[in-house]
Write a protein that binds this DNA or RNA. Structure first.
Lengths: 335, 335
DNA sequence: GTGAAAGCGCTAACAT
DNA sequence: ATGTTAGCGCTTTCAC
């Protein structure tokens, strides 16, 4: 293993000079710099991460805590994770992957050991048991998602309330008056993950203003569950002409069932989804949707993290404005 | 920040004693151990990861290199990653997440810096440019997937050849003679990712033995592409009664199209898939399938890694035997 | 612009 | 069963 000292000897300079060439923290004459850089190349030197962390009290690692649960839409999680990783690399950070499994203990372990300089936490619950630790920790933390009490925390999320409102306005504007909302699985609501409720609030607020009737049904997703849910919806509100789906696993079953019942989309009923663009595009009908900006969420989370590490951090909530893309699944109310 | 020295003083012992209490590398009298453990609790001590790594030349971190590409089935990648992470934790390791983006440079960076003790690489291509570095590195590496030349490497993968054979045998046993294989996107084949070809080899070998006719068509997945592909298949081989699908994005479109054409599954045509159980269960027809054992692959990769780190490592290829589950989508050939 | 040297917190011989 | 001590490889004052 090549050490900094060996590079120094090879280049005929002192260890500190090599260190400063690497860090750029003081000016180096061009000649010296070139000699050192050549030595680094020739010897194949790589700075030792442990020694660096020890001497500088910085690991250049950001911990990312992922949900272990797989009841959320997995591709979104994955896209966030990849966005976090690539963005972090762009800022010189590596990413340590943690699962929610360990719970608060993981927070303690990582912040206590200096394994990571900061932490990004996904899938935050409204009253998450990790929050007290994160607030108390001197290491920066950024949440993806919104807990009930955000004081002393930095949070990044899609503005789900605005998302809900946007959906209601779109369908209302097309003349729909009876709207069904197919929500996440009941377990998601029970877990109080926040985003589902916020979406509903947004929908309800806008519906009230516009005089729309809203029927909300959580759904497990899948064909069987969706068939039962759909039957009950049309039973209760036969005049339903608009659907808002916030459950990736319910999208295709819903479309298939409507087709099967002879209800054409968008001629007879309009369907819109809150989902990643990719899903909206690959569904059997190209879906009008509000996209879940997974990449953007990951990127912003890292940028807030880096800012806080540079001590120009700003606590607060950063809500990403929803964007609606009209595609082939919504149209004016029939008749 | 609490240090080991502070714990030692607080407990009235030497630093090394505290270290040995922590590592268990030498016997400690019960009294001493208890005093040290109490001090650790009271002071809230956490060993510093950097100092540990420096002194022991071990980071207790395993790097996991994920594909950046998102053209593979994402939930499988995610499940592998989670399995790797939880299994690694069970062995006392943390996981550093790398994307393929950096390519071979990431291998150099991580192995060179001692950031990680070992490396697990996913989505290996047949002639992957990272292989020379992994072979040369003194740090253990385990691949998930099978390159063309596996000498000097440890690999874990599903036995895709046996998987292909199993599919052919299942359909052949039900009397099907004309079988269509819906494969991955052309890009996957062009990238020479190995598993697709191996599946095909297995299918072809068994088909030859059993006297089956095989028609292989790569597919982008999605409704549009699948419609075109299916039309060509029935055009070319009108007598096709069996389908093997190795492309998650093609499963539901295929089922929908068959339904739409009035071909009942499994009465008129049988469909089987090579996919995770979850997808097989949530499809519109419960699919007979060979499952992709994502969790098992992640777990075994870690266990091989840990074994190699303990110097009881064994190079070689570990193929996981395929398991077929018969569900509602395959049946005897009609007539 | 460069060097010397004192740690950073821990591990692992080497003692006893 | 426990203590002493010499590093591990790097960063960063302090000195010139």
């Amino acid at each position: 293993m090549v050490t900094l000292a060996e590079v120094a000897k090879h280049a005929g300079v002192s260890a500190s000079t090599v260190s400063y060439v690497l860090s750029g923290k003081r000016s180096i004459s061009t000649g010296t710099r070139e000699r050192v850089e050549r030595s680094i190349q020739e010897l194949g030197y790589h700075p030792n991460a442990g020694a660096r962390a020890l001497a500088s009290s910085k690991s250049n690692v950001i911990a990312l805590m992922m949900p272990l649960r797989t009841d959320m839409y997995v591709p979104v999680m994955m896209e966030i994770a990849l966005a976090v990783t690539t963005t972090a690399r762009a800022y010189g950070y590596d990413v340590l992957l943690l699962t929610g499994e360990e719970g608060p203990a993981a927070v303690r372990r990582v912040t206590g050991s200096g394994l990571a300089d900061a932490m990004i936490v996904m899938d935050v619950e409204l009253d998450d048991e990790r929050l007290p630790l994160l607030r108390a920790s001197e290491r920066p933390a950024v949440l993806i998602g919104l807990p009930a009490d955000t004081t002393g925390l930095t949070c990044v999320d899609l503005d789900f309330a605005a998302t809900g409102a946007l959906c209601a306005e779109h369908l209302g504007g097309l003349g729909h008056r009876d709207i069904a909302v197919i929500g996440e699985a009941p377990a998601v609501y029970e877990r109080h993950t926040g985003f589902a409720e916020r979406t509903l609030d947004g929908l309800r607020g806008a519906a009230r203003e516009l005089g729309l009737r809203l029927l909300h049904r959580p759904s497990e997703g899948g064909y069987g569950a969706m068939a039962a849910t759909l039957a009950r919806i049309f039973d209760e509100r036969p005049g339903t002409t608009g659907f808002v789906v916030q459950n990736e696993a319910a999208v295709e079953p819903l479309l298939a069932l409507l087709r099967q019942q002879g209800r054409a989309v968008p001629e007879d009923v309009s369907v819109m989804a809150i989902c990643p663009d990719q899903l909206a595009l690959s569904a059997s009908v190209r879906l009008t949707s509000v996209s879940i900006p997974a990449h953007e969420m990951g990127r912003q989370a890292v940028e807030h993290t880096v800012a806080k590490l540079a001590a120009r951090g700003t606590d607060g909530v950063e809500l990403i404005a929803p964007e609606l893309t009209v595609r082939a699944s919504t149209g004016p109310v029939p008749g």
